[in-house]
Computed example of a mutant assay.
Amino acid sequence: MKVRVEWSYQSPKGTKAFFQSEELPAAHALLIVEDIQKTGRAKSLEFIDRFDSSWTVKELKAYLKGIETEPHNITVYFDGGFDKDMGRAGLGCVIYYEQSGKAYRLRQNVEAAELSSNNEAEYAALHMSVLELERLNVHQLPVVFRGDSNVVTNQMSGEWPVYENDLSRWADRIDRSLEKLGIQAQYELIPRKANAEADRLAAQALRGVDISGTMELEKT
């Protein structure tokens, strides 16, 4: 989870000012706040997450302690490809997360039938991603979903209405799954080039190449 820090400051002579940081990983923000508090001049201080919820120092410490051994700091990349001639779709997702002080990458793809368009394949790939999060036992956490589909990203974020019945069914299914897991979803539209890993997985699924696995990454 990323948060921004907001605090008011008062100098020894009584001059007051208000400050706001850029978004930072919660653990980094907490370290900065602990340093600010040593000055004794921060008169009010709080953390604001991406959903504009406010956290105290005590609340954020408890949150970080609680998720230490669970998957967190999760970013999902998803992509779907559709072969119209063969009536088949390839779905791919890549999930980056941290757990117990280590960083991991999960990759998964699958071939799907009975889909009718590339947009439906993109929705199916997003749904597959949510199922993988459920298998990871992700609950009550913010998750960033990144894809290169204008349709899926804008419809799931509420920017565009969903008129097509088949897409509406996928959107409702995904929303129900996210609600059940307590996941706070943030959708980000990214260029196709930035989604190359998920795109490659979807293409491999269409060629009959199955990919499934998790590996530990070096933390930067």
Rank of each mutant, 00 (worst) to 15 (best):
E59K: 14
D35I: 06
D49Q: 06
L30R: 09
L60K: 11
A42G: 15
L45P: 06
R41H: 10
S54K: 15
S53D: 11
F47R: 03
D49N: 08
P25M: 06
K65G: 06
E46F: 14
L31A: 07
D49M: 05
A26E: 02
V57D: 09
K58Y: 05
K61C: 07
H28I: 04
R50Q: 04
P25Q: 08
P25E: 12
S53W: 06
F51C: 01
P25F: 11
V33R: 04
V33K: 08
K43Y: 02
I36V: 12
A27V: 02
A26V: 01
I32P: 01
G66K: 11
L64T: 05
K58E: 12
K43C: 00
E46L: 09
K43S: 09
L30I: 04
F51L: 04
T39L: 13
L45I: 15
S44W: 13
K58T: 11
Q37L: 14
S44V: 06
F47I: 02
K61G: 06
A29D: 01
S54C: 10
F51H: 12
E46M: 06
A29G: 14
S44D: 12
Q37R: 13
T39I: 10
A42W: 03
A62K: 15
V33L: 07
E59I: 04
Q37A: 07
Q37Y: 03
R50E: 06
T39Q: 13
D35F: 09
L24I: 01
L64H: 07
L30A: 04
